[in-house]
């Protein structure tokens, strides 16, 4: 394997997950994303490279980080806790080492394919007994396509099921490489109108929709995950278009998972000392979601809420 593809930037590996695909799953959260959705729930997954992010609640204002930082990138605000100036930070990790209170944490570990697979393999008996496997999520896994392909290929060799949780925005050539080793695609569709899509996520949706058509045409089993974001995509017209689009994709479509907006991400932004750009209310009730379910059920075999 090419040395550059043998390593990836991994944010977290969570075992025994039950929300992201069938059975018990190990979810590998990769770092880096092409999109910039305003409601993003995993802001620590946006940037492609390892970075130091503060947990402001843990900071005791001891100032150890200040004294070790060679580039003066860290500042400790009495009220807000530690702040990092990204333009100055060289990710030398001196501050992370110095902080004994877990207030400065490195997000994104450089891991080899072998390391990731070794951790995924730990739960093999559980996958076998439950029909589970590995799910590569993010961030956006397709931001590290070679690494994802290598991990999936290795997992498949071990008899471990593979799932890809993607926003779909990636060159088809990359996508195709990964799909060769993918048992299930979980594919986000956020907005059918490309202008709106650009406005809320930073890019248009043409590539995304085209990739969805191609994956379905290849016959790789696909589930669509649709966030319901009040004030952004939550319109009848959008759901009608999305349902119609998915309905025309044929037998590869297993179903739709509706993911109603919840405000939990706000707490994470706060912990990281960031402003949450989409503090959109308290979330949705069952009654809000019911008509959307009905609409999709006219076009797809199965609709779930909450993944």
């Amino acid at each position: 394997m090419h040395p550059e593809t043998a390593f990836g930037v991994v944010n977290d590996i969570q075992r025994m997950c039950t929300c992201d695909g069938p059975g018990f799953r190990t979810v590998v959260f990769l770092k880096g994303c092409y999109l910039n959705c305003r409601w993003c729930h995993n802001p620590e997954g946006k940037r492609r490279y390892p970075e130091v992010i503060p947990f402001v609640g843990n900071c005791v204002r001891c100032g150890e980080c200040l004294s070790v930082c060679p580039t003066a990138a860290v500042a400790v605000d009495d009220e807000l806790g530690p702040r990092i100036d990204r333009s100055l930070c060289s990710t030398c990790l001196q501050c992370v080492r110095a902080c004994t209170h877990d207030a400065l944490v490195l997000w994104g570990r450089i891991m080899s394919v072998e390391q990731v697979v070794a951790e995924v393999e730990q739960d093999k008996t559980l996958y076998v007994n439950s029909g589970g496997g590995v799910t590569i999520s993010g961030g956006e896994p397709m931001a590290q396509p070679d690494f994802v392909r290598a991990v999936m290929e290795a997992c498949r060799k071990q008899g471990i099921g593979t799932a890809l949780d993607t926003c779909g925005h990636a060159p088809w050539e990359d996508m195709e490489q990964v799909l060769r080793f993918t048992d299930l695609v979980m594919f986000d569709i956020k907005q059918m109108d490309t202008h709106e899509h650009r406005q809320y996520s930073g890019v248009g949706n043409e590539l995304i929709l085209e990739n969805a058509r191609r994956i379905a045409a290849l016959g790789v089993p696909i589930r669509f995950r649709i966030p319901i974001i009040p004030g952004s995509n939550d319109s009848r017209r959008n759901w009608e278009r999305a349902a119609g689009f998915i309905g025309r994709l044929g037998n590869a479509v297993l179903g739709v998972d509706l993911l109603p907006y919840h405000p939990f991400a706000g707490g994470k932004y706060q912990a990281f000392g960031m402003d949450y750009p989409y503090p959109g209310g308290e979330g949705l009730s069952d009654d809000d979601v019911a008509p959307v379910i009905d609409l999709f059920l006219e076009h797809v075999p199965e609709v779930t809420v909450g993944g």
Partner: peptide
């Protein structure tokens, strides 16, 4: 303790009190 919500990755103790309360309610 991990907050298990599809597509959302967080350890419960890492997030703010208010969000924790919100999650408890949910």
């Amino acid at each position: 303790v991990i907050v298990r919500v599809a597509g959302y990755s967080a350890h419960f103790v890492d997030i703010s009190r208010k969000t924790q309360d919100n999650i408890i309610q949910r």
